[in-house]
């Protein structure tokens, strides 16, 4: 009995000692009104109509425009920002057993060289958040999915680690986790035996921020916004400059566009 009493989270003795901030924060996230009908059966309704509680909407399509002329050769600011934000690569203590070809890379800089002219470009390459993503088509369980607002994600809850999406992705945007993980960020879960890729910093986008890579680029080479909104900065820019979709021939219609190549 004494053990059971000790387990009682509502004990007055306990109340006196704890700081209440965490609870308030937590309840603040809980915008739903909830009614318990019977033990185990719960009705949940969305009471609060604040922006983030509505979730992703198909009225938006998040995308990026990358100006390769402004991407400076050797600069890796976007890569480092992504690593810090999402807890991979340098700064993470994980993946210490994996070799360099096994380690995950959510974003990388690719140097493109025209073999005829010798002209080179550097550009950041990551998940292109396709309108018709091959990874989503081939995934047997539906773990690879596209949100209504065009962001392509892996639902690691049901990813079985078959890697077919990695075979299907034309951009080599996906990585497999080859060992146990312990040092994740709370907003970027990563785990052994599942596939992962750029999330377009969905946790930041959902609260109205820009992806970490875009924010970190002080050369102004990366622009983020809503491709569906004709008045957004990115749509206006896309209307005036010539831009390219990588492997447009495959018909994937990427949400990430490039200019200057």
């Amino acid at each position: 009995m004494s053990q059971k009493q000790k387990m009682d989270l509502n004990s007055a003795e306990h109340n006196a000692q704890v700081v209440d901030t965490a609870r308030r924060r937590f309840l603040g996230q809980a915008a739903g009104a909830t009614a318990v009908i019977a033990p185990g059966i719960t009705l949940m309704t969305i009471a609060n109509a604040e922006a983030s509680s509505e979730g992703a909407s198909s009225a938006k399509r998040w995308g990026m425009l990358i100006d390769t002329n402004r991407c400076e050769e050797g600069c890796k600011d976007c890569v480092i920002a992504c690593q810090q934000e999402n807890g991979w690569g340098i700064g993470s203590t994980d993946e210490s057993l994996s070799n360099s070809r096994q380690k995950a890379q959510w974003i990388r800089t690719v140097t493109v060289r025209d073999t005829d002219t010798g002209h080179t470009n550097q550009l950041p390459m990551m998940c292109q958040h396709c309108e018709h993503p091959p990874c989503v088509d081939v995934c047997p369980t539906g773990a690879s999915m596209k949100r209504a607002d065009g962001i392509v994600l892996v639902d690691k809850h049901i990813c079985i680690g078959c890697r077919y999406c990695m075979m299907a992705c034309p951009y080599k945007a996906r990585s497999f986790i080859h060992e146990s993980m312990h040092d994740q960020k709370s907003h970027a879960p990563r785990g052994k035996g599942t596939v992962e890729s750029c999330t377009m910093c969905v946790h930041r986008v959902d609260r109205g921020d820009q992806p970490a890579c875009v924010e970190s680029c002080d050369k102004g080479a990366m622009m983020f916004g809503d491709l569906n909104d004709p008045n957004s900065e990115i749509s206006k820019k896309l209307a005036t400059v010539s831009s390219t979709q990588i492997r447009a021939d495959l018909g994937t219609s990427p949400g990430v566009r490039y200019s200057g190549i």
Partner: peptide, 25 residues
């Protein structure tokens, strides 16, 4: 050889019918 062989039951319960892999199951 699956990354998450322990989740095999997911492959039996959660289907994406566009996937040739799911058809193969």
């Amino acid at each position: 050889d699956l990354g998450r062989a322990d989740r095999l039951v997911v492959a039996m319960t959660s289907y994406n019918f566009k996937s040739i892999f799911a058809w193969n199951i």
